[in-house]
């Protein structure tokens, strides 16, 4: 483990000083990387730890974003306070989805369909909710006076760089602690074999609900960040299925159920997407979908080379213990 610790500390120091040598564009790319790592970590709590496939995590991103943004715009409540009701709202939504799923024994892909359905309902609902701008979009005020008010999550690229880095690190720490906890072991048993877990006295339903609660609460913060980073919200974008898929991709590519998988996955996928955008622009290929095709090809190559995820493959090679358990 000594070698792994040295690598981790060097990488962390590099990320802390790296902004000195970055322009605005590069900073924004890293913000996306950290955001994807954070959201992927949150999703991983459900899928990787508890074995619950959610393909509707955009629900929690969107609810968190809209809740914090609405409280800020309509009542002037700082997002640092607004994040708590945003979290609560997402946890309530999570309990509803989870309760329906577990009460009626909807499992596996059918549970995933349920999560998609809820995200879609939210998308359509917010598309018609005039209180938050409906389909015309919901815009956060950006003005000279509020600039630099960090307590209102107002700031420049550097501010959001460190904020997203902090969130990604916090998520890593939370997941590390969760996996070692009693709850983490209950999730492991539940994921491996829910029936067997029941037979040895594990409250499977409670373990699963708690996984949904934690995952939803964590993801809501990704939504709050999204709202105050982009300053505009469109229900059609934020609740879209493609956002859920984006969240899912980083941990899948990096390694489901591992601690560093979501981070490694985000470090691969976000730059890949940016490179492809640049490349297609430089080559003058403007046909819609070209980027998506190459992105898809890239995904296929990565998954073919490292079926269990990139991080477990790296970890094996480096002789580090953290694979999927």
């Amino acid at each position: 483990m000594k070698k792994a610790e040295v690598v981790a500390i060097v990488a962390l120091l590099a990320l802390l000083v790296a902004p000195l040598a970055m322009d605005r564009y590069l900073l924004s790319v890293f913000v996306l990387v950290f955001w994807a790592a954070y959201a992927g970590q949150a999703w991983n709590v459900m899928m990787g730890f508890a074995g619950l496939l959610s393909l509707g995590h955009s629900l929690y991103v969107g609810l968190g974003a809209y809740a914090a943004a609405a409280l800020f715009v309509h009542f002037g409540i700082s997002p640092l306070l607004g994040l708590f009701p945003a979290m609560a709202l997402c946890m309530i939504a999570g309990v509803v989805v989870g309760w329906l799923g577990f009460r009626f024994r909807i499992e596996g892909v059918y549970f995933a369909l349920l999560t998609i359905a809820f995200a879609e309902v939210a998308r359509i609902g917010f598309d018609h909710l005039t209180w938050t701008g409906a389909a015309g979009g919901f815009f956060l005020p950006v003005s000279r006076e509020t600039a630099g008010q960090w307590w209102n999550l107002r700031g420049g690229p550097l501010f959001f760089y460190y904020l997203s880095l902090g969130m990604a690190l916090a998520a890593l720490g939370i997941c590390w602690a969760l996996r070692r906890s009693r709850l983490g072991h209950q999730w492991l048993a539940t994921r491996e074999d829910a029936e067997a877990a029941r037979a040895i006295g594990i409250n499977v339903t409670r373990a699963r609900i708690v996984a949904v609660l934690i995952s939803a609460a964590m993801t809501s913060l990704a939504g709050v960040f999204y709202a105050f980073y982009y300053n505009n919200l469109f229900a059609a974008q934020i609740f879209d299925m493609s956002r859920s898929i984006d969240i899912v991709l980083a941990p899948i590519v990096g390694g489901i159920g591992t601690l560093f998988g979501p981070i490694i996955g985000a470090l691969i996928l976000i730059p890949l997407g940016e490179l492809l955008t640049e490349a297609t622009r430089a080559l003058g290929i403007n046909a819609p979908g070209v980027k998506a095709i190459f992105y898809g090809l890239g995904l296929m190559v990565i998954i073919a080379l490292a079926p269990g995820g990139v991080w477990p493959a790296i970890a094996r090679r480096l002789g580090i213990g953290e694979g999927r358990r």
Partner: peptide
């Protein structure tokens, strides 16, 4: 209970 079919956790 020891359930039917030896439900051990195979990957643990």
């Amino acid at each position: 209970q020891v359930a039917e079919g030896r439900q051990v956790f195979p990957t643990l």
